[in-house]
């Protein structure tokens, strides 16, 4: 049901530019106004979110430790520096492994004693694999698009372009990243739809971005391989945007406006959704701090000195007599004169 809502919603989004540009000819609105607003909202929203997160305090240092701690003597036991870092640089490596290689997700796949078919483990490995494929191809595609926003085109973008199409299949050359991202998206959507466990926890805000990105990818693929749109015209428009001289050339295919509109929606949606895990992963206190709290004192900005333990003196006052009777040392002696001690009992 959640999936259906999301699909319908994305299809509606596709209709908007179709009607807007196709029927009403609002090219400036769809080509300039909406994208620039989206970019502004994206940047502002992203910054806002990061600021909001960083303004939340980090009162305690609570990394999840995934291996042997730094021992009292390094020659005695071997520290697992990447999973249980105790210094800044080690923590950076842990974060890099996390962000670039999805190390925690990979843990799922650790081989172990098991019975039954080996396939049992593959599903767990696949999540890691396809998540990695999806994210990397997404990244490459975004980087490739830089060619539309820069003149002259930087060398690394051209290089990326070349490598991505290195198989030299078809004309225009098929980018591997396009094929891989479709594969990745297909898997990520498929497991949400067919894996009962994942379906159970999935919300509209899980399906919606998936369908949205699928829409973006498909419209992009259609433009490149089927409609074979006029890229120079598009570059005219995009360069206009980045140089603040907005201008919409006449001969741009309608598919481009759909593509652009969906991208705008994605940018608008991004800062207010789970997609912010892009930023959040860097701020997760269980991963981005070293396990060094016995070596270096971490400061809690809101530590309240009024919250404190029951003072010893209080404790001794309550139990002094009993302590003295069994010979436990006390700070203050019992009130002297045993005769006096008896007197109140009689009173």
């Amino acid at each position: 049901m959640n999936a259906l809502y999301s699909l319908v919603f994305v299809l509606t989004l596709v209709l908007i530019p179709l009607v807007g540009v196709g029927a009403a000819d609002l090219k400036t609105i769809f080509g300039v106004c909406i994208p620039s607003t989206a970019i502004i909202v994206f940047v502002a929203g992203f910054v806002y979110k990061i600021i909001k997160w960083s303004r939340s305090a980090v009162p305690f240092r609570i990394p999840t430790t995934g291996g042997q701690q730094r021992p009292y003597d390094p020659t005695m036991f071997k520290q697992n520096k990447w999973d249980n870092p105790s210094t800044g640089p080690q923590t950076v490596i842990r974060m890099l492994l996390e962000v670039l290689a999805f190390r925690s997700l990979f843990r799922n796949t650790k081989a172990s004693l098991h019975e039954g078919p080996v396939v049992a483990y593959a599903s767990a490995k696949w999540l890691w694999l396809f998540a990695l494929l999806f994210h990397y191809s997404f990244f490459i595609i975004v980087a490739r698009h830089l060619r539309l926003f820069m003149e002259p085109i930087p060398g690394f973008v051209n290089a990326l372009d070349f490598v991505d199409g290195i198989l030299q299949i078809g004309a225009p050359v098929v980018y591997q990243s396009d094929a891989i991202i479709i594969l990745g998206l297909g898997y990520l959507l498929g497991r949400r739809l067919w894996d009962a466990r994942i379906r159970y926890i999935s919300l509209v805000n899980d399906y919606f971005p998936l369908f949205l990105i699928i829409g973006i990818v498909l419209s992009g693929v259609y433009m490149r391989y089927f409609a074979k749109v006029d890229v120079m015209a598009i570059k005219e428009l995009t360069m206009g945007l980045v140089t603040f001289h907005p201008h919409v050339p006449a001969n741009i295919d309608i598919t481009f406006f759909i593509h652009l509109f969906l991208v705008s929606v994605l940018l608008l949606y991004f800062p207010f959704s789970k997609l912010m895990h892009l930023g959040g992963v860097f701020l997760s206190p269980t991963r981005n701090l070293p396990n060094d709290t016995r070596m270096n004192r971490h400061i809690n900005p809101w530590n309240d000195p009024k919250v404190h333990a029951r003072p010893y003196a209080d404790y001794e006052d309550e139990f002094r007599e009993k302590m003295v009777n069994v010979g436990i040392p006390v700070d203050k002696p019992l009130p002297s004169a045993p005769a006096g001690a008896e007197a109140p009992e009689k009173a």
């Binding site: 767990a124 999540l127 926890i201 919300l203």
Partner: peptide, 10 residues
């Protein structure tokens, strides 16, 4: 904010 409900923990 950041859970993507990937199900790795499930």
């Amino acid at each position: 904010d950041i859970c993507v409900r990937c199900g790795a923990c499930a």
